[in-house]
Simulated assay, not measured.
Amino acid sequence: MSHTAHIPSHRKPRRSASKLAVRAGVAGGVLSTLAMAGTASASPAAEPPTETTLEMPVLNMDLGSEVSSAVIKAADNTRAQALVGELTAQENAARTGAANEAKLAKADAQAKADAEKKATDEANRKADADRANRSSGRTQLASASASGSSAGSDSSDDSGVTAPATGSASAIINFARNQVGKAYVMGGTGPYSFDCSGLVQAAYRQVGVSLPRMSQDQSSEGTSVSLSNLQPGDVLYWGSRGNAYHVAIYSGGGKFIGAQNSGTGIVERSLSYDPPTGAVRIL
């Protein structure tokens, strides 16, 4: 190669003035910033950086009061609903109990009514049977009256008027008459109700005479007398002697006092109302 030959130069091309100015401005700005940062970091009087604390939001007092009121109101509503439920349950239980009690009371009342009706029907049946038996015995009564003696034991004079009761007979009749209007109750022995034999027994007890309780046994007491020779205080019976089903007390004047049945109670009636079968004299 020739020494004169052209060798390309390695020198960088020269930049334009405008570009150099821009680069110088940028470099100057950077250096200024670095200088200020160094000065700030080297300054001993610089205060340490302050920590930043996040503040919690403060609850507004009015809002807190509203929340508390809402909670209390919700609790009150819950208690009120529970109380209403309890009261409803108690009311339902009470209604159920009242319904059951009413049902039992109705059944009990019906049972009592049925029992009373049965007793009344039985008493009426017995009264009807008594009347039928008495009617069948009237023929026997007629014959007994025709054959009756009119001897000294007869308390009637020739006009057929019965002498008034005296002494013990009067006390018996007065007691029996004082019971007129009281109720007939089967098995009753006083003082508010009687059956037929209970009345006779109570009347004779007034004069110290103790009679059996049943009409069958009462008709077996004393001495048999004819119906034409009756005296006040004699015990009348219906049926047969020793097997009578009804008794009463002869009160004189063709009448008797007796506890007839549940329909009539204790009455004083004429012998013709229900003629007896026979009579016994105990006094």
Rank of each mutant, 00 (worst) to 15 (best):
S135F: 11
A132R: 12
P49C: 14
S251F: 04
P13R: 15
A89S: 09
D195W: 09
N174A: 11
I266H: 00
R131N: 03
S153P: 12
A27T: 07
K255D: 07
S168Y: 09
S32C: 10
S193E: 00
P13V: 15
S136H: 09
N124V: 14
T96V: 12
R95C: 08
E221R: 15
A74I: 07
L230C: 03
S68C: 10
N100S: 11
G254E: 01
T277S: 10
P57V: 06
G208R: 02
S272R: 09
K103W: 12
Y184P: 00
S136Y: 10
T277R: 07
S219C: 02
P275H: 08
A151C: 05
P212G: 02
D154K: 06
D114N: 07
F175W: 04
R177F: 11
G254H: 00
A163W: 08
V180F: 04
I7R: 08
I266T: 02
D130C: 05
L63E: 12
L54I: 08
A129I: 04
P275W: 06
I173E: 00
T33S: 11
S9A: 08
L271A: 03
A259L: 02
S210K: 05
M186N: 15
G137D: 07
N243K: 06
L104N: 07
A146T: 06
S2Y: 10
W238M: 03
P276A: 05
A176P: 02
A17H: 09
G188I: 01
V22F: 10
A98G: 06
M56A: 14
T189H: 01
T277M: 14
A74P: 06
I7C: 12
T53C: 07
G190P: 02
A259C: 01
K255Q: 09
R14Y: 12
V209P: 05
R281L: 06
N124G: 13
R95I: 10
E101D: 15
I172M: 02
T96F: 09
D121I: 01
A42H: 06
N243E: 01
T277I: 06
V207E: 02
G29V: 08
N77S: 12
D158S: 13
E221D: 14
E66A: 15
E122K: 09
A42F: 04
G263H: 14
S149F: 09
A169T: 04
A82N: 11
G239F: 06
A35K: 07
G252S: 03
P232N: 04
K118S: 13
A37S: 13
N100R: 11
L236M: 01
I266Q: 00
V225T: 05
A171T: 08
L59D: 13
G253T: 05
T162E: 12
Q218L: 06
Q260C: 11
A165K: 07
G198T: 05
S226A: 14
G137A: 12
S16W: 13
C196Q: 00
E66P: 13
T162R: 13
S149V: 04
G198W: 04
V161Y: 10
N174G: 11
S153D: 13
N229L: 15
R11I: 10
V185C: 04
Q90P: 08
G190H: 00
L211Y: 03
L211E: 04
E101K: 11
